[in-house]
């Protein structure tokens, strides 16, 4: 792998997923070290009217605490933030997050495209976007925004994805830096972690 990706300048990692992504993402969160320094923003399609349960389910195996941010909450290093049910999650200039009840985007709220695009605007080349399994196209244009701003784009290998529409759609609209099996995505982040230890 090209070593130019392994530096310690990243400000954020955005992760999107829908059907079939819950398992690989819980695994990823379980395998990350507790002191993994880069803030992670999760935007996962979830049931609109179920406010509870999802974060608990995600947290069971996670080494790191997962939070649903409040509007205008400050981004802290090492935290994992989950887009709340029925809200879009955006990253704002000035290192805060904002929530929005704007209409559905790609039939979704939270929409991965909005989280990814807003993060791309704020973090530019210091952002990594990861898109997992899913059955619709949400996230594809978000990945394009990340690439256009010089960030890093990673998709779960469509061969491995339970639903491959989401990663494949991203691949159709933009350049993907890495197409990896879920386990290799974890390894990528673990290698990155080493760069932060130096």
């Amino acid at each position: 792998m090209n070593s130019s990706f392994f530096h310690n300048k990243y400000k954020g990692i955005v992760i999107g997923g829908s059907a079939g992504s819950f398992k690989p993402i819980t695994k990823l969160l379980a395998d990350l070290p507790k002191d993994f320094p880069i803030p992670i923003f999760l935007c996962l399609h979830r049931l609109k009217h179920v406010r509870h349960g999802f974060i608990e389910a995600l947290s069971i195996k996670s080494s790191k605490p997962i939070l649903e941010p409040l509007d205008k909450e400050i981004v802290r290093p090492g935290m994992v933030y989950l887009a709340p049910a029925n809200y879009h999650l955006c990253i704002e200039l000035g290192n805060t997050m904002s929530l929005s009840t704007e209409g559905l985007v790609n039939n979704s709220r939270p929409a991965i495209d909005l989280t990814f695009k807003s993060a791309a605007y704020v973090y530019k080349e210091k952002l990594i976007g990861i898109l997992f399994s899913g059955a619709n196209k949400d996230g594809a244009l978000g990945m394009k925004a990340i690439k256009d701003k010089g960030g890093v784009t990673i998709i779960q290998d469509p061969e491995e994805s339970m639903m491959n529409t989401m990663p494949l759609s991203a691949k159709q609209v933009t350049e993907i830096d890495f197409c990896l099996e879920a386990e290799k995505i974890t390894n990528f982040l673990l290698d990155l972690y080493k760069a932060y230890q130096k």
């Binding site: 406010r51 649903e68 409040l70 509007d71 205008k72 909450e73 809200y87 929530l99 009840t101």
Partner: peptide, 9 residues
């Protein structure tokens, strides 16, 4: 206020 808003700040 909304369930994900706060006055803390």
């Amino acid at each position: 206020i909304g369930s994900k808003e706060s006055l803390i700040w």
